[in-house]
Design a protein around this nucleic acid. Structure first.
Lengths: 349, 349
DNA sequence: CTGAAAGCGCTTACAG
DNA sequence: CTGAAAGCGCTTACAG
């Protein structure tokens, strides 16, 4: 069989081809594609058969230009390099991607560096129609561009954090940091630890402050010298542990705001010839995949990062599709006891 | 000032608005936007001024529908969950994303699960115009769908691996695994280690076989019982180390195909009451961000993952734009000596 | 329930 | 060097 004059045989099959061979209009094919209930069963089946036979795939660029959605959601992170290499973000993003795929959405990664924001590229994401909505992960209170999204009416959700005054279009999905911290602290208490120091991440991050709050609440006459900032990373975490140990040689336990800082703390203790947990107990927060392979295996609080990403993605897509109800969900955490914590043995040096 | 009849004031500014207020045609505005050299300086400046004044942003969906490119590249990974949580992939992807942003491209993440491939979704990526090209990371020889891309003429690059018979449209960018392995083995030899065991990742991965080849080449009368598969992960790595130690109690060093398996090996040694490196030296491969915080800090071979991702992205975009020359580039590695390796001390148990 | 027509917002030959 | 026109491949009112 030859092609009709004017048609070349090597051209991709389009909606017009399907319409022609099914004997309907392109509008009808489009409606079949979009499961429009107005189409009769007979027509639908006939068109579907033709689509299957020809292997037709709608051009999603054309669909987006005519339609309302791009069907892509953006993940905004602060600087990718040492962010993506962090298992924490990896877990969240996996959850987002898997859910997005199920919902028929693509995911695009974006790093919000200072120049990115200065050039308003975060809003360009919407204005040039790159995305239908964004998920923001890993920012702190100084990232004040976050308010720009809801101000412009663009769907945005904050993952694993919370910010003030972000407006209606914004929502949050996060782990229950407060309960996790209380649980970890209660556990140390139960092991007999009365002299506990804390290495916290940052005062500019809401979830990090939640841990500090839980720590302070444990002590009636609170002593601020029991706290030291560890900036979420191994090296500053080690330095923080060192400062704490210098100030308080009688500490029997260290509560760390994340596993990385706990890793730094363990290293500092080891360097000082102190044994973990015989001399000092260390507990982390996050439960990174390799926490159980640390030496000693790290006791920590498990945070359901994958699930947080999954849920955040689901809620964002709902919002994109018109959901008005505010999103504010918290997922439970779990204490994981391994080798780095043990009964307190009072020391004095 | 009022709007012309028929225009609503709240409509986004489009190319027609710019054309009208600059007194030119939309074709001219489009050419200015695309830096077409045929436009005179005077016209260009006038149109640019109008664009700046109005804050006009071209709709990239419309640009893609009319134009040839989507300006998005896809990263294909085997199952996201424990892949993205792996710092190795995180580094590569950061490199890809940063370079893509510089080249004006967006990046989308895709996990090639069995059903994804079965439904031909990997080709749909191109056919429905989601991407202009893809980067494939983390696959092995059994993933035979990789040939589909070049068969269909779609730009694809393999990152940090190599496959046979993938055709012209395909290329590779990877680290120099062979040289890295030789360097590590020479170093162990230099420390006096004559009884060395190897925990390798998989026989289905080219780069992993490169390490095995280097290991076998070191021994004249090669003994296959000195090798054990560790599947790139901590637990099987630990099991592999255990098997090796059971068979050869006189081993003084373990060469591991990646840092995760080295972590498992260290754990096995510790569990057996053997000291690292006093009794047995352990060397890894990858240099993950936390390798230096392990206890003991891991000696390993540094692989430039970020740079590999960066270069792969650059080469892929060149290919998309028409580059014909085959891509096959290798990046140098570097031996990193830390605490887990030391001089050999012969044992017998 | 279905079709003819307009339109989404750009780019690309083609004239001039 | 620039403009008028067609076209990219869909979806969406609007009629009937």
């Amino acid at each position: 069989m030859r092609n009709a004059p004017g048609t070349t045989s090597r051209k991709r099959v389009g909606i017009r081809d399907i319409a022609a061979s099914a004997g309907v209009s392109t509008a009808t094919v489009s409606m079949v594609l979009n499961d429009n209930p107005k189409i009769s069963d007979a027509t639908r089946d006939r068109v579907r058969a033709e689509i299957d036979r020809s292997g037709y795939q709608p051009n999603r660029i054309a669909q987006s230009l005519s339609g309302k959605y791009t069907r892509v959601i953006g993940i905004l992170l602060p600087e990718l390099r040492h962010t993506l290499a962090d298992p924490y973000f990896g877990e969240v993003i996996s959850g987002v991607c898997d859910r997005a795929a199920q919902l028929g959405h693509k995911v695009t990664l974006e790093s919000a560096r200072p120049d990115f924001i200065r050039e308003r590229k975060h809003l360009e994401l919407f204005e040039r129609r790159f995305v239908d909505g964004v998920l923001c992960i890993g920012f702190d209170d100084r990232h004040n561009f976050l308010g720009d999204f809801s101000a412009a009416g663009h769907p945005m959700l904050v993952v694993n954090n919370r910010f003030d005054g972000l407006g209606e279009a914004t929502g949050v999905v996060l782990c229950d940091y407060a309960a996790g911290a209380e649980r970890a602290l209660a556990y140390l208490d139960q092991l007999g630890h009365r002299r506990v120091g804390m290495v916290y991440g940052s005062r500019d991050v809401h979830t990090s402050r939640l841990l500090v709050d839980a720590f302070e609440k444990r002590h009636h006459a609170f002593d601020p010298s029991l706290l030291e900032e560890g900036r979420f990373a191994e090296d500053p975490g080690q330095a923080a542990a060192a400062a704490l140990l210098d100030r308080h040689p009688d500490l029997t336990a260290l509560f760390c705001g994340n596993d990385k800082m706990a890793l730094g703390a363990v290293r500092e203790l080891t360097d000082r010839g102190l044994r973990v947990p015989e001399d000092v107990s260390v507990i982390g927060f996050d439960d990174l995949p390799y926490a159980r392979f640390m030496n000693p295996a790290l006791s920590t609080v498990h945070l359901p990062f994958y699930e947080v990403g999954d849920l955040a993605c689901e809620r964002l897509v709902e919002r994109i599709r018109g959901r008005k109800k505010p999103v504010d969900e918290t997922l439970p955490t779990r204490l994981v006891i391994r080798e780095s914590t043990g009964r307190a043995t009072p020391r004095r040096r």
